[in-house]
Design a protein around this nucleic acid. Structure first.
Length: 881
RNA sequence: GGGGUUGUAGCUCAGAUGGUUAGAGUGCCUCGUUGACAUCGAGGAGGUCACAGAUUCGAGUUCUGUCAGCCCCACCA
């Protein structure tokens, strides 16, 4: 036997074990291998930085599913990789440039991209290291990156195809613009937040001097770009005024008063100033009424072409405009007004709607099949409630702005000819205009939204656009594991692209998890400084402890709170397993490992633990198949700690320390068999611990991660399914608990040997107790044990289903207290009997409830009445003393 | 404005298809180092399952409403 330390010390073996697995290529598979395909593509972590606790959860869930299926014999592939995360990574690198006192424009595009690639190398490696630390069994030989050659080829092919089919188009539109990131954004990259703002009421005079119209606005600075004022066509207040001309204050531009049913009569004054160049609604109205678009805010959020305001920041300009309006007598009043304001999801700057030329994906035709796929069940969400969120979003989708004015990303494959002015979109680079054969071509400088390449991830990683063996074998993948926060960003787009380009859904299940929050339930963020580094947790408690913590104590799809006390509990569980194994190994030392007991060698305890094992195998398997990973983990916790350690190990000690070699060998065999199976069941959750222990067991060969996942069938003859075994065990354990209880109530050490007198309720129970009396001695220090028909008067007592228990403890018995204790017990029982018999005398219950339920109630009642009689007799006896 | 979700022991949370005398971890109290484990063992206290109705023989579990918290979506200036 190896020396095995007294406590669980994961730092001593986790790294080495992972290296062994990787060296032995245990993570690797090939398409031609046997087994049903099981494939997960990793949600590629952003190369912006290192992994956080949310990633640790995501990867743990995936690794559990992957390891489970690999052990089940499936041809299992976990595709790893990382995402270039265009805007996010670029922002990080720009920030570090700022610290060096330079910027990307000074560096130039080429040099800047070199810097980003260096960044990518650094954090990409860090992420791989973290994934390994966590125990992730991904196929590293297949690691991918959203900007590698293969993914780039996929992006080009998809872009060109969609363009040729008219599903990608270029157009001038009003889009969300981040003045700080200096790029367009898609709708979902804008986060709306309620802000306390103001509603300014302004007077716009009529050109003919007949008075004025009062408008209300939350953004007075945009008035510089106003080209009209709109009212509702049915608004009586304005009906006769529509068509008149107004003079825009400060600017003195003539603008029309017109009617549009978009306007809400009940809001503000019922009159809206219209700024087509800087508000999406006004933009639409502007189109309907042929209004001029006057751009007064530039890409950086500064005012342009507006006289004395030119060059001012938009908020600075607001102050001045308000002051000038007030001075001119145009400001009527200012009200407080809360409203939703859009912010850039990356840098939190207030988004500025701007008119610009961008590339879009037409969503409607792509969205329809994506909705169908979920409605028909081709894709199933777990938990199911996310289906609704997904469908609802897709049914209200708008075109997707995919161009970004960034440098880091997939550059758009479009070229403009300076000679003929025509555009060419091509999969391969273009150096000659196909229209005029001119050579003066400029490539579109924009890059694609990072989610464009992510959308192709399930098939680009499997080889697309090549028709590879992997693509044939593993697509559609089995399950996508991700957080609910990126359903819109990523899941829907993968489904759309998968259906469009493969004709099949990209995955059959979407397993959604929640966020990992801090101890107080707050999001872990950099600004709060409340993030916990998974690697730090792993260093102190081990990866297995972290994994177990992340997967237990919450329900799929719900957020979880993370704190160290939880990890400590998991670590203690690991330590428990460690020590149970240590106990076994110490006893196994020098013993014949090839011994196999006959069925007759097994005693009650053995049969019982094997029954429990069979039960847990089923429970764990069923729960894993339902994605109830936490429940599966809980089953194992209970089995190992409460059944295997608390009872079974204790019940083998007499045999292990006794002289009967065959009995000892039998106990060791069952101990080993059950532990080994439990380790395999637990392996997906705690891969390192289970590997290191199993390798020390004499029976095991090879890595546990390639061993078969336990089945009830493998127990074969050892498993005795007789229900009498469970009943017998239940009686014994109930007596054990009762004896222990009495002892501690009167202050006797539960391990101090005490004489116990038993009175069984019938012959079967009597036999059971006497056959297994040794167990009572081992678990409750009942010694000697006697059987009697009479109730000893001077004794402490208890009643369980099937037996009365007496502890004749002369000198320790306070009769009054004993009566009180038993009376309390009696009253509780009486209450239960009252409610149960009421239930049973209710004809409706007996008539309508299922027969088995009624039968169960009858049995409970009978047992309780028997117990009550015994208790009453006992109390009477004590009172007569 | 629409949608989702949560409200169970001091704290963190489990409790499919309605039927247990409602559970775990942690914390608390009492006791315990005879050879797996004090990262432990034995025992105990602690909950009218947010509130009000409804359905049912029976509801923590289904439905409706109320209150409270959280989240997502949303172009009322």
């Amino acid at each position: 036997m190896d020396n095995i330390s007294k406590t669980y010390e994961p730092q001593k073996f986790e790294r080495e074990i992972y290296e062994t697995w990787e060296r032995d290529k245990n993570f690797h598979t090939t398409a031609d291998r046997d087994g049903a395909p099981y494939c997960i593509v990793i949600p590629p972590p952003n190369v912006t930085g290192q992994l956080h606790m949310g990633h640790a959860l995501d990867e743990t869930l995936q690794d559990i599913l992957i390891r489970y299926h690999r052990m089940k014999g499936d041809n299992t592939l976990w595709m790893p990789g990382t995402d270039h995360a265009g805007i996010a990574t670029q922002a990080k690198v720009e920030e570090s440039l700022r610290k060096e006192g330079t910027n990307r424009y000074e560096l130039g595009r080429e040099k800047f991209l070199e810097r980003v690639w260096q960044w990518k190398e650094k954090f990409g490696n860090r992420i791989s290291y973290q994934l390994r630390t966590l125990g992730s069994s991904c196929d590293w030989e297949r690691e991918r990156f959203t900007m590698d050659a293969g993914c780039s080829a996929a992006v080009r092919k998809v872009f060109v195809t969609l363009y040729n089919e008219g599903l990608i188009y270029r157009g001038t539109r009003i889009t969300n613009w981040c003045p700080k990131c200096n790029t367009a954004l898609s709708d979902i990259e804008v986060e709306h937040e309620d802000e306390a703002g103001h509603l300014w009421h302004l007077r716009y005079p009529f050109a003919d001097g007949t008075g004025y119209v009062e408008v209300a606005t939350t953004r007075p600075e945009t008035m510089l770009g106003d080209t009209g004022v709109a009212v509702h066509p049915d608004d009586e207040r304005y009906k006769n005024l529509v068509g008149k001309t107004l003079i825009l204050p400060l600017v003195n531009r003539e603008i029309p008063l017109f009617a549009d049913s978009y306007v809400d009569k009940s809001f503000g004054t019922g009159a809206v100033k219209v700024t087509p160049a800087h508000d999406p609604n006004d933009y639409e109205m502007g189109l309907r009424h042929n209004l001029e678009q006057i751009k007064v805010i530039d890409n950086l959020g500064k005012m342009i072409d507006v006289g004395k305001y030119t060059g001012l920041d938009r908020y600075e300009c607001r102050k001045q405009i308000v002051a000038d309006l007030e001075a001119g007598g145009f400001l009527v009043k200012v009200e407080n007004h809360n409203h939703a304001v859009g912010h850039c999801s990356r840098c939190h700057t207030t988004v500025e709607p701007l008119v610009s030329e961008q590339w879009f994906v037409k969503m409607e035709t792509l969205a329809k099949p994506a909705i169908e796929a979920v409605k028909t069940g081709a894709i199933k969400f777990v938990p199911e409630r996310f289906t609704k969120i997904y469908i609802n979003w897709l049914e209200n989708i708008r075109d997707w702005c995919i161009s970004r004015q960034l440098w880091w990303g997939h550059q758009i494959p479009a070229w403009y000819c300076d000679d003929c002015g025509k555009m060419t979109v091509s999969e391969t680079d273009v150096d000659e205009c196909p229209h005029c054969h001119g050579k003066n071509l400029r490539r579109d400088e924009d890059v694609l939204d990072t989610w464009f390449s992510s959308a192709l991830w399930p098939f680009s990683t499997l080889g697309y656009p090549e028709e590879t063996a992997e693509l044939k074998k593993y697509y559609p993948t089995s399950v996508l594991v991700t957080g609910y926060d990126i359903i819109f960003f990523w899941v829907v787009r993968m489904v759309m692209m998968g259906l469009k380009f493969r004709g099949e859904v990209p995955f059959k299940h979407v397993f959604i998890h929640g966020l990992v929050r801090d101890e107080l339930g707050r999001k872990m963020t950099k600004s709060l400084g409340n993030g916990i580094d998974p690697v730090e947790i792993i260093d102190t408690y081990g990866a297995d402890s972290l994994r177990f913590t992340l997967v237990t104590g919450n329900t799929p799809g719900n957020d979880m709170r993370f704190f160290r006390a939880k990890v400590e509990a998991s670590r203690n569980f690991a330590n428990k397993i460690w020590n149970a194994s240590r106990f076994l190994l110490m006893n196994l030392d020098g013993f014949d490992a090839t011994f196999k007991p006959a069925r007759e060698d097994l005693e009650l305890a053995d049969k019982w633990i094997l029954q429990r094992l069979a039960y847990r195998i089923n429970a764990v398997t069923e729960n894993l198949d339902k994605f109830e990973l936490g429940e599966a983990a809980r089953q194992l916790y209970e089995f190992i700690w409460f059944e295997y350690c608390d009872y079974y190990i204790e019940l083998t000690k007499a045999r292990l320390y006794g002289d009967n070699q065959r009995a000892k060998a039998t106990a060791l065999f069952v101990l080993t068999t059950v532990l080994e199976a439990a380790l395999r069941l637990l392996h997906p959750f705690m891969p390192f611990l289970t590997e290191v222990i199993r390798q020390k067991l004499p029976s095991a060969t090879g890595s546990i991660m390639l061993a078969k996942f336990p089945t009830v069938e493998e127990l074969g003859d050892l498993l005795d399914k007789d229900k009498a075994i469970a009943d017998a065990a239940k009686l014994i354990l109930n007596v054990v608990k009762a004896v222990r209880n009495i002892k501690t109530e009167v202050g006797i050490d539960s391990r101090k040997k005490t004489r116990v007198v038993l009175k069984a309720s019938d012959a079967a129970n009597q036999k059971n107790l006497s056959d297994n009396a040794r167990y009572l001695t081992e678990l409750a220090a009942a010694d000697p044990i006697e059987f009697a028909d009479e109730k000893p008067a001077h004794a402490l007592s208890a009643v369980v289903d099937g037996a009365e228990i007496f502890l004749p403890l002369e000198g320790l018995i306070d009769t009054e207290k004993e009566i009180a204790r038993l009376t309390k017990e009696r009253d509780k029982l009486q209450k239960f009997i009252a409610s149960t018999s009421a239930k049973l005398s209710n004809e409706k219950f007996v008539g309508k409830a299922p027969a088995n339920v009624v039968q169960a109630e009858r049995e409970k009642l009978a047992a309780s009445e028997e117990k009550l009689t015994a208790l009453d007799g006992r109390i009477a006896q004590l009172k007569s003393l």
